[in-house]
């Protein structure tokens, strides 16, 4: 009963992880590439962790819940990394298939790379 469920969860998780990385290679520009890994991977690792919780719970005859911690952590941090990455890409004005929105505010100068690291005089 448990074993087919575990196998299905593991295969689904690994497949989603694979598809996330495949998206990283196949999709045409950075903003679309961002969608593959940050999410498909999260669901993939999520189902792998559920499988792990079930497996160790069944093995030890109790419940194993610490996998929930990693899952929760990934579900909280993945959107933050995705948001920061896309913000950084917008800041660098990376080439995009979709029309880029106008730059936020008029005061920031347009840059092509990161500003020099020794900007602060200390």
């Amino acid at each position: 009963m448990l074993e087919p469920l575990l196998s299905a969860l593991i295969l689904a998780g690994a497949a989603f992880t694979f598809i996330g990385s495949l998206g990283l290679v196949r999709l045409p520009d950075f903003y679309t590439r961002l969608h593959g890994p940050t999410k498909a991977t999260t669901l993939g690792v999520g189902s792998l962790l559920i499988a792990s919780a079930l497996y160790f719970g069944a093995r030890d005859g109790g419940i194993s819940l610490h996998e929930v911690l990693v899952t929760l952590f990934l579900f909280i941090t993945a959107p933050v990394s995705a948001h920061l990455l896309s913000k950084a890409a917008l800041h660098l004005r990376l080439r995009s298939l979709a029309a880029l929105p106008p730059e936020e505010g008029g005061e920031k100068p347009r840059r092509n790379g990161p500003p020099p690291a020794n900007r602060k005089p200390e």
Binding site: L34, A40, L43, P79, V80, A82, S86, K87, P101
Partner: peptide
């Protein structure tokens, strides 16, 4: 809201206007 948009695949919240 921004985290939810980022979590649901197919959409990423890129920037909050100032």
């Amino acid at each position: 809201l921004a985290n939810t948009i980022c979590l649901t695949p197919g959409t990423v919240a890129s920037r909050l206007s100032s």
